[in-house]
Design a protein around this nucleic acid. Sequence first.
DNA 1: TTAGTCAATGTAAGCGCTTACACAGCATTC
DNA 2: GAATGCTGTGTAAGCGCTTACATTGACTAA
Lengths: 343, 343
Amino acid sequence: MPNAPTPTLNDVAEAAGVSTATVSRCLNAPDKVVEATRIKVLDAVDRLGYSPNFGARAMVAKRTNTIGAIIPTMENAMFARGLQAFQEKLHAHGYTLLVASSSYQSEIEAAQIRSLVARGAEGLLLIGQDRPPEILKFLRTQRIPALATWVFAPGGDLPSVGFDNRAAMAEMTAEVLRLGHRNLGVISAFTNGNDRSSARVEGIRQAVQDANLPDTVLTIVETAYGVETGQAAMAELLSGDIRPTAVLCGNDVLAAGAMIEARARDLRVPDDISITGFDDLEMAQVVDPQLTTVHVPHREMGTTAAAALIEMVEAGGQSIAGSSQNLGTRIIHRGSLTTPPRT
Amino acid sequence: MPNAPTPTLNDVAEAAGVSTATVSRCLNAPDKVVEATRIKVLDAVDRLGYSPNFGARAMVAKRTNTIGAIIPTMENAMFARGLQAFQEKLHAHGYTLLVASSSYQSEIEAAQIRSLVARGAEGLLLIGQDRPPEILKFLRTQRIPALATWVFAPGGDLPSVGFDNRAAMAEMTAEVLRLGHRNLGVISAFTNGNDRSSARVEGIRQAVQDANLPDTVLTIVETAYGVETGQAAMAELLSGDIRPTAVLCGNDVLAAGAMIEARARDLRVPDDISITGFDDLEMAQVVDPQLTTVHVPHREMGTTAAAALIEMVEAGGQSIAGSSQNLGTRIIHRGSLTTPPRT
DNA sequence: TTAGTCAATGTAAGCGCTTACACAGCATTC
DNA sequence: GAATGCTGTGTAAGCGCTTACATTGACTAA
């Protein structure tokens, strides 16, 4: 058996006894071809197991119907959920999603952006607002519309579809302070190069300031994303001189870790210590007590972002601008937050 | 400002005053070009914001360094984790990962396979072993090596890197039976078109049979993936005539749902009822009591699969076969499984 | 000096596809 | 019965790139 190379349009044309143009038409505009021919051609396609070469097609058609997304990591349920919704919406509009991950590193993100654009992405979904000017310039010269998500930052370099991390966390903090807590632990994901994390921490500081309290009421620990790291951070917080009565966590996963550590030390949540999360993942409902957290409409965000990006792409060269949308968050009161224990 | 189209190799060549061949060489084999020229060219590349067109390159070079993966959904931590490891390994070997999701539907998977191949995927990671013969034929005629994962099925149509779902679940069931349970509830993900789910259920039946027990000891409920569906399934199980003393869940997420329902009914886990999971996700450690579950080496599987697939791809036309690897699982004893309550 | 070598660059073909245009055949229309 | 339109198909250009081969010129060796 000779090493049959993968069949091309030409092979199909020969097999069907027609020209390549006809084959192409059969595949892309079947009604422009009379039925008898179409059957002949489709039969040949089947027989040869022909599959069109996307690159060649894209090169001449100048359309790819492809949109790219770059997320820090797939291993974060929050992104996974939003992305799944994003992809479903894209699919419904005939677009294909290409996903890449950056491991939270700006240079990798830059490389991935170039890679996705080279692969024909006509629009890009990115996480967060901050990125180096070279990238923005690249996007501009390539005329690729891009959307920042998981943040709401009108007037930023990129249009954004998301929510106000800072305000949401400030609201949660205000609630904690209102309940009477005056000694707050904070477990945050690394803020360096992560504008969502840092906005959340800023929100906390803001709320403390707005309540006319000194920022010495705060003890902040930064750590990597994960249950175990959250647990370790909680251990650190609890071994300090003054024990916080409430711990604000930058996300639900860290909060779950904090709860494990609290339990390990025989601290009852929330009677001995309150814990709050952020994101409202499944995990928030699975821990005991269930987590009081900030609900983020991840799926809605994915869907809205898809719609916005498609619009930007189809607006074409005209305006790459697009406009920002704030999706809003709300505090979900469950069992992990209450008044501080009486001493 | 004229509508500047995105710059091409030619534009760079003109801007640098050299031929396209030289520009191409600068980019792909810099040492074949004298330094002075190289600087000129790279400068022009920068100035124009040039980015090579992947499709055009792939078309002539016949290499894409791209591997595709199709998973049922990104919204499942189990896949996310394995995939992240897979992608890291690929990256280290200079390959790019293209991800698509199939929503657990075979026809969508087939379409995605074609789409990824058309986009130049040189190898494919798939989940599970079962798929229609047309797809296998397509893969064969296109000479695309493919690997089945999350299963171990030597002698199957595709080589596999994974674990034996059936044996793992049988082992867990045997353990439950050994503790004295004689009334087992089972909450399984839908088994239809999901060979992992069905293998797990088969494992349970097998273990019951091996213990010379009638399969009336089993009450099986199938449901969709999710905490809430797990909870509903548990409710169904608990409202039956005879209450199971142990509930075997097809995965940790369903198990977490089951625990919530148990708690809602004031049943203590494990004293009143035992619950087991499968996968050993973070969620298993976060619930209280922590879940006794089957540990699956997701990351290791991803890494191993990447290595195997790269090897298959680089073996090229010769043998698309590859060989299967069984990664092994083990039961993690935590707090959710104990002997049945005395009546 | 002259042939020979070699490194640096240019020339041009062609990868697989779509599509503008040309063309043939046929049914209408006056 | 010629002019007209329409429909189905073919012809061929060219998308952006890599690379085999040709060319150039500087240098070496005899």
